[in-house]
Design a protein around this nucleic acid. Structure first.
Length: 467
RNA sequence: GCGUGCGUAGCCAAGAGGUUUAAGGCGACGGUCUGCAAAACCGUUAACCGUCGGUUCGAGUCCGACCGCGCGCUCCA
């Protein structure tokens, strides 16, 4: 039974979608003001992707939406500084994000809508909120009237009495005119003539931060949908405000399950530019790390636990992922006798059971990966002692594909073709070995090593890999 | 300051009252296999589960205090 920890109830709950067999999923996506960092990818490309993939694994037909926020104060500032339009500025980072997302082995969501392409939908919600008394206009801007939404705070359980007044200096210095300090902007009036703005029924301006997610999620998934996910920092105010906007406008429940991914730390500290431990995916790639290893590391800890990202850990993930690749390659190449082995059949069944029990338990990827490793070890042992049979080989390969349809941590084998010269050297070395001319064979192996090719002599022939 | 979460072997970590004499991965050391390697496997290594106190027949697991770290308190994945 698939269970999720729902922030709304504060409890582990069985997942029951609104419509049998269908799962409607919204994951908060990136603000494309800069290259995304590994923390963003932990949430969107690791957690969000595994959530999507496991729902599919469990037989749901998934509609997954991930927004691209392409209008926001930083974007406005930086695009102006460069003399670019918002679209010119954000297209570079949007493309980079999606490239990195793909590189990390994440499946593209069904819809990746951009905020700037949904202004009319946002205006429509603001009008409904205004007409129902949930919003008011002030100096051309629109604000949400928190006092008009009795459930405000139900997601974050925020205690306004205790901390909001004393905790934030900004409330007092807010330049906008609001009825109540807690009210938040739905629509910001254009301040200066050169400031980007949309000319709409409610005036010339730009959307507030939260309204885009209400507009785009409801447009693509319906007024009530199943799962809304994102980083834990979004619980308040972003998701709390989304609920207020959406439920205020429709009078219906918004998302039913709220899932929040914990942040990662780097070497035990918060990741920040000032500490010099702020890494984008591209930074790690430039350092030579394999995207699959990065994915593995991001997945190796359950999403509701803080993950301590370290380079030692990443190096370990490189080794682990390489051993998974070798394992699958070895199994694919193995020549086996017909029949099956009862011990392996049981091992495979056990691995499947552990994998599903782990994943069902709020996506415990640590347990799921342990199941994969257990099967890897038992299968390798069987291969070593030649007791693996043809049915086992076929069944375990199929099982690995099932696991991998969720985890996607087995790196694909690289292009099989070697250039002719290298292939000739490999062949020549094999001949030398048959002649027992090991000096020549080792000479060739060293030569290939210099070209970054490592050889492994196996029972089933020679295998090579790029270092 | 208020709220919230976390602190498990050299590193990353699962586990949340009794088959735990604490999963899994990485590392280190020894061995098997190999012409030698590589890969793989086997074995060893290594945790009084942050500290102190409490509840309980029994506590990494519950409660309290303290120390350290993360997150939120309307910029943030």
């Amino acid at each position: 039974m698939l269970k999720f920890f729902n922030t709304l109830s504060g409890q582990l709950e069985e997942f029951r979608p609104m419509v049998e067999g269908e799962a409607k999923l919204y994951v908060c996506g990136p603000t494309v003001w800069d290259f995304a960092h590994i923390g963003n990818f932990r949430t969107m490309a690791a957690f969000g992707d595994v959530l999507r993939r496991y729902l599919k694994y469990r037989g749901y037909s998934v509609t997954h939406v991930m927004n691209i926020t392409d209008v926001e104060d930083r974007i406005i500032k930086f695009s102006a500084e460069r003399g670019q339009t918002i679209d010119e500025y954000t297209s570079k980072y949007t493309e980079a994000f999606l490239e990195d997302f793909d590189s990390l082995g994440a499946e593209r969501p069904e819809v990746t809508p951009r905020a700037t392409r949904h202004i009319p939908e946002m205006v429509d919600i603001i009008k409904r909120l205004r007409d129902s008394g949930h919003a008011y206009e002030s100096e051309g801007s629109y604000y949400y009237r928190i006092g008009a939404f009795k459930d405000y705070g139900k997601l974050s359980k925020i205690n306004f009495a205790g901390n909001i007044v004393g905790g934030s200096e900004r409330v007092a210095t807010d330049r906008y005119e609001k009825e109540d300090a807690r009210d938040f902007a739905l629509w910001k009036a254009q301040d200066a003539p050169d400031e980007p703005a949309w000319d709409t029924e409610i005036g010339k301006g730009r959307p507030g931060w939260h309204i885009e997610c209400s507009a785009m999620s409801m447009k693509y998934l319906g007024e009530t949908f199943d799962i809304h996910a994102g980083g834990i920092d979004l619980v308040f105010p972003h998701h709390e405000n989304e609920i207020a906007q959406s439920e205020g406008a429709t009078g219906r429940p918004f998302a039913r399950y709220w899932l929040h991914a914990e942040h990662l730390k780097v070497e035990g500290e918060s990741m920040s530019k000032s500490l010099g431990n702020y890494y984008t995916f591209r930074d790690l790639q430039e350092k030579g790390f394999n995207p699959t290893a990065i994915r593995y590391l991001l997945l190796s800890v359950p999403y509701r636990k803080q993950l301590n990202f370290t380079f030692e850990g990443l190096q370990g993930a490189e080794r682990t992922v390489e051993s998974l690749r070798t394992f699958r390659a070895r199994l694919r190449e193995a020549r086996t006798e017909p029949g099956s082995n009862a011990g392996l059949k049981a091992a495979a069944a056990r691995a499947l059971e552990e994998f599903e029990a782990g994943m069902d338990d709020d996506l415990n990827t640590s347990v799921a990966l342990a199941a994969v490793h257990g099967l890897r070890r038992e299968t390798n042992t069987a291969l070593d002692s030649c007791v693996l049979r043809e049915d086992d080989r076929r069944d375990i390969l199929a099982l690995l594909e099932r696991f991998n349809s969720v985890l996607n941590v087995f790196p694909e084998d690289e292009a099989v073709l070697l250039d002719e010269y290298i292939q000739r050297l490999i062949d020549e070395r094999q001949e030398a070995r048959h002649r027992r001319d090991f000096a020549r064979a080792d000479e060739i192996r060293d030569q290939l090593a210099e070209r970054g090719i490592t050889l492994e002599d196996t029972r089933d022939g020679v295998r090579w890999k790029r270092k």
